Structure formats: C-alpha cells, structure tokens
Simulated assay, not measured.
Amino acid sequence: MFIQIIYKILFTWLVTRCSGRLLDPSLFKNVLDDVANNGLGVNQIQDHFNSLTYTDTSVDGSSLATEISSSLSSKFNGPIQALKNLKTAIEAEIGNFRTSTSIVECCRARGTTYNSRFRSTVNMNEACITKSENSPSSIRYPNNRIVEVMKKNYQENPELKWQYLGTEDGILMNYPSFKFSTCRDYDPRFRPFYVSSATPVEKDVVIVIDKSGSMNALHQTQTLIQIAKQAANTVLQTLNPNDRFTVIAFSSGAEVLGSRYRDCIKSYELSEATPMNIKFIEGEINRLSVDGKTNYEAALDTAFKFFEKSPRNISGESREKVILFLTDGEKTAGGDPLSLIAKRNGDLENEIVILTYGVGA
C-alpha cells in the first residue's frame, strides 16, 4: 500500500511536469495526507503518544546548562588534547623519520579482531601504513614513537577512535592497524583532511575539460578523455565543503555540467563542494563523450562568467580563485584565448590563477 501511494505521488508529479500544467495543491495535499495516515500511520502514532502517562518534573535550567556544558567539554577536550599530543610528538620526531620502517603495511595487517568501538576488525597493538604509488623514491617514514603516542591517546580518551597521519611523501599512518584491500591505491595528499590543512584558504575552483574528438586518442592503455575524467574527479575529492566549484566541458562549444538539472548552475553560480554536489557532478563527468573541435575561447568565456557572477567574498574572507584547464593540444576553433584572458582577468584585478595541464603529453 505504501509503495502504491509513493508511486501515485511520483506519477502525479511526472504527468504534471511533462504536460506543463501547475500542480493542483488540493490534490497534492490529499495524497500527502493519505501517505501520512495510511502509509506511515501518523494518526495511530499520535493516538498512542496521547495515551501515555507522564509526570511533570521541575528542571533547574542553570544547573542543567552547566551539566550539559561540562559533558560537552569532557567529550571534546580529550580529543583536542590527543591531537596536541600527536602534534608535539611529530614536531619532535620528524627529524628522526627514516627511509625504512618496521611498521607493517595496512594491506598486510595481521592479528586483527573485531572491535565494537571501531565497528571493524583492528589490531590495537599496532599501527599500519599505506604508501602511494606516486610516492617519491626517497620516502621518510613516521617512526614508532608516533605509534606509542597514538596508543597512549587511545588509552586516556574513551571517546577517541581512529588516529592517522598523512605526510607529504604520500604516506598514511593509521592507528589502530586494519586491513586495506590494496597496497598502493590510497594517497592522503588527495584527501580533504590533508588538503584543507595544507591549503587552509577557501577556494573557488572551475575545472575545464576538453571533450573534443581528439580526446579519444590513446595514451598507453587509456583514452585521453578517460585520463581527464580521472584527473577532474581527483580534484573534486580534494575539495572541502567551504570551497566552491563548477565543471565545464568543451569542444566546439562549452557545456556547464549539471546546468540541465539545476537552475543555480545555469545562472553561473558556483556550487558549494558538499559531498552531495560532488557526487552529482562526478556522475556528469563520467558520462562525458567526445566530439567536435577544440574551442578554447568558448571554454574560457564560460569559466570567467562564474567568477564574474558569483559573490567574490563570503563572510568577508578572500578566496583563492583557480581555473584548472585539461586539454590535449592546440585549439581548432574559436578566437584568441589569450586576448580573452587578458581582458576578463584584468577586469577581475587578475585574481584568477589559470593552471593548464596537457593530457597525455
């Protein structure tokens, strides 16, 4: 019955939307009432609530506020102190990090058992590390002194759970140890926790992807458009919710991804980098197909519109403004992109940094 009611709502909405007529508010109200009463049992729940007995108890608001404040302080002060302990240890030991380590890789984690606090199988006696496939050859690994501090933090803080350290060499140390499925797929430098610490200034980012016909060429085992999609998705994963972004795909003309479904994007408004928005645009990126010529002018014209029409500052704070331009070669359509950049960026006081990446070069 409940499924039938939901189907009725969706069918009514879709028919109304496709035919272009306004939704009858009284009809929609009746359907929602039907869902509430017959599908969810709201009236029955209310009747049951009304039948319950209760006792009025006077509450001392001042004492209750003090109790809540003390409880919250206890909950947050422990983890904050644990973070300070870890920071102090890292600063003291970083000069002692070595090019080899006895700490096991997470993909080879051993002795793990289920722990309800972590809701996972872990080894509380060890930390583990991961190493990115893009790590340099001269890696410096965190040492066991850091592991000991993590263990002590855990023992002293009943609310504390995962502790981890990401380094500029692409190393992740995780305590407690747990099993990773692969050895080289994870790189902390591309995760929001690392990027937001390394670049704390909030960002406005416009990613521009070349989807012209030449992007169908192969580089090793992948097409250039596949490489560009992966690069764009990786950038999206480094953003945090305080950043704003949009993605433009271009060939003979330019297309703002998501503009067919969201009016805010259609009006050249940058989107907040929330997980939901990022997931939505990732889906749009993955559906891109190649065709047409290479029109840099159209792509850059569209990119600059987002900086011109979005608020330049939020909450009084300045923001870094970046265009990431992913392409495989020279333009084959449109006007001079350098003249456009000089004019439009000049109008914006040259605040926009343009980073160009040659895909497959």
Rank of each mutant, 00 (worst) to 15 (best):
I354W: 01
S214V: 08
D187V: 03
F2R: 14
I285M: 04
K305S: 12
A333L: 11
T356E: 07
A298D: 05
E105L: 13
G360W: 11
Y54K: 11
S62L: 09
N115T: 06
T57I: 09
A198P: 03
V149F: 00
R119D: 15
I314D: 05
N350L: 14
Q226R: 11
I207N: 04
C128M: 10
R189Y: 09
G258L: 04
K203D: 08
T234C: 06
F178T: 13
K131R: 13
D47P: 01
T16Q: 13
L10I: 15
Y175W: 09
N240H: 11
R184G: 04
S271R: 07
I146Y: 03
E159F: 05
K29L: 11
S289Y: 06
A232E: 02
T167C: 05
S70E: 12
D204G: 12
K29H: 11
S69H: 02
K152R: 10
L160C: 08
P79R: 06
S310E: 08
A299C: 06
K211S: 05
L300N: 02
I45N: 00
S214T: 09
L338V: 13
I3Y: 14
R312I: 09
F306N: 05
Y114S: 04
V147S: 00
S102C: 02
S289V: 10
I207Y: 02
R244N: 12
V208S: 04
S69W: 01
T101K: 03
L257F: 02
N125Y: 03
N144M: 11
P188N: 07
V104M: 12
P192R: 03
V195F: 02
M276E: 15
Q4T: 13
S120E: 11
H48Q: 14
G61S: 06
G358F: 10
L172T: 03
T53W: 04
R262W: 02
L172M: 12
V206K: 03
R117L: 05
S251N: 15
T55S: 10
E269W: 01
I94N: 11
R262H: 07
E202I: 06
T332I: 00
D33L: 14
F118R: 04
L14A: 11
L239M: 10
C107E: 03
I171F: 06
L340Y: 09
I129T: 01
S70M: 03
M124E: 00
A232D: 03
K203G: 05
R145E: 12
N50M: 07
L224F: 04
Q220G: 11
V42E: 07
N125F: 02
I265Y: 00
R140P: 00
N153P: 08
N43G: 03
E284V: 00
I139H: 07
T99P: 04
F325R: 01
D187A: 06
V247P: 00
L300V: 12
V31M: 11
R287S: 14
R189I: 04
W162Q: 13
D56K: 05
V195K: 01
S310D: 12
L340N: 09
S120N: 14
E202L: 07
N240A: 07
T221R: 05
F306H: 04
E156H: 12
I323V: 15
S120A: 12
K279I: 14
